[in-house]
Amino acid sequence: EPEARKIVEKLINNGLSPEDVKRWAEKNNNPEVKKAAEEYQKR
C-alpha cells in the first residue's frame, strides 16, 4: 500500500519512531499503516 508507506515516512520525518507510528496506527485503527511501519523497520 504506497499511500500507507507515504504516511509512515511522513510521520517518521516528523520525528516519530516506527514504534510510535505503529501505536498511532493502532489508535487510529489503521492496519495498513501499521503494516507499512513494520515493513519500514525491516529495511
Rank of each mutant, 00 (worst) to 15 (best):
D20F: 05
N29D: 09
K22Q: 10
P2S: 15
K22V: 15
G15N: 03
N29C: 08
E39H: 06
E32F: 10
K42H: 11
E9I: 12
K22A: 10
E26S: 04
L11I: 02
A25I: 02
W24F: 02
R5C: 12
K27H: 10
W24R: 01
W24K: 01
E19L: 07
G15K: 03
L16V: 06
V8T: 03
N29S: 07
E1C: 08
P31G: 06
N29K: 07
R43I: 13
A4H: 05
R5K: 13
P18S: 09
E39K: 05
V33Q: 00
W24T: 01
P2K: 15
G15W: 02
R43G: 10
E38F: 05
E3K: 05
P31R: 07
A36Q: 07
K6P: 04
L11Y: 05
A36P: 00
N28L: 06
W24S: 00
N30S: 11
A4T: 05
K10T: 13
V21M: 03
E19R: 04
E32Y: 11
N13M: 14
E38R: 03
K35G: 04
D20S: 05
R43Y: 14
R43C: 12
P18V: 15
E26F: 03
K42G: 09
V33Y: 03
D20H: 05
K27G: 06
N29Y: 05
A37Y: 05
K22D: 02
A25F: 02
L16Q: 04
P31K: 08
A4D: 03
R5N: 12
K27S: 10
A4F: 06
K42V: 11
D20Q: 13
N30L: 15
N13T: 09
P18F: 15
A25Y: 01
R5T: 13
N30W: 15
N13E: 13
P2T: 15
D20T: 04
K34F: 15
A36Y: 12
S17N: 06
I7V: 08
G15M: 03
E39W: 08
L16N: 05
E38G: 03
L16H: 05
V8H: 01
N30G: 00
K27R: 12
E3Q: 09
R23L: 13
R5S: 12
I7F: 11
K42Q: 13
P18K: 04
L16D: 02
L11Q: 02
I7N: 02
E26P: 00
R43H: 13
N28I: 09
E32W: 11
R43F: 13
A36G: 02
E1I: 12
Y40I: 06
K42T: 11
P31N: 08
L11N: 01
V21K: 00
N14M: 15
N30R: 14
P2M: 15
K34C: 08
K27A: 14
A4C: 04
K6C: 11
E26K: 04
N28M: 11
V21F: 01
L16S: 05
N29M: 07
K35M: 08
K22Y: 12
E39L: 09
I7W: 10
E1L: 12
D20E: 14
K6N: 10
E3S: 12
P2R: 15
L11R: 00
A37K: 00
W24M: 03
P18G: 03
V8M: 09
E9Y: 09
K22R: 09
A4G: 04
E1N: 12
K10A: 14
K6R: 13
N29Q: 08
R23N: 09
P31T: 09
E9D: 07
N28K: 04
K35A: 10
A25E: 02
D20P: 00
I12D: 00
Y40V: 04
E1D: 14
K34L: 15
E39A: 09
A37T: 04
E32L: 11
N28W: 11
I7T: 07
G15H: 03
V21W: 01
V33H: 02
K42W: 09
E19Q: 07
A25S: 03
V8S: 01
P2F: 15
S17T: 13
A4Q: 03
K34W: 15
K22S: 06
I7M: 08
P31Q: 10
N14Y: 12
K22P: 00
Q41S: 10
V8I: 07
R23H: 08
A36C: 06
E1A: 12
E39P: 01
K10I: 14
N14K: 14
N29I: 04
A36D: 02
E19K: 04
E1G: 09
E1R: 10
L11G: 01
E19W: 05
K10Q: 14
A4W: 11
S17M: 04
L16F: 13
K42R: 12
E9K: 08
P18D: 02
E3F: 07
I12E: 02
K34T: 07
I12M: 11
D20M: 09
E26L: 06
Y40Q: 03
K27N: 11
N29A: 07
V8G: 00
K10P: 02
Q41T: 09
I7A: 04
Q41E: 13
A36K: 03
Y40S: 03
S17H: 05
V33T: 02
L16K: 04
E3G: 09
D20V: 04
K35T: 07
P18M: 12
A25P: 00
A4I: 07
N29L: 06
E32T: 09
Y40T: 02
L11T: 01
P18T: 08
A36V: 11
K10M: 15
A37M: 09
A37W: 05
V33W: 03
I12C: 07
E19F: 05
N30T: 04
A36F: 10
P18I: 15
W24A: 01
N28R: 06
A25L: 02
V21C: 09
V8E: 01
E9N: 07
R5E: 12
Y40F: 10
N30M: 15
E19N: 07
E32H: 10
D20N: 04
S17W: 02
S17P: 03
E32Q: 12
R43T: 13
E1Q: 12
A4K: 01
V8Y: 05
V21D: 01
R43N: 12
N14R: 13
A4V: 06
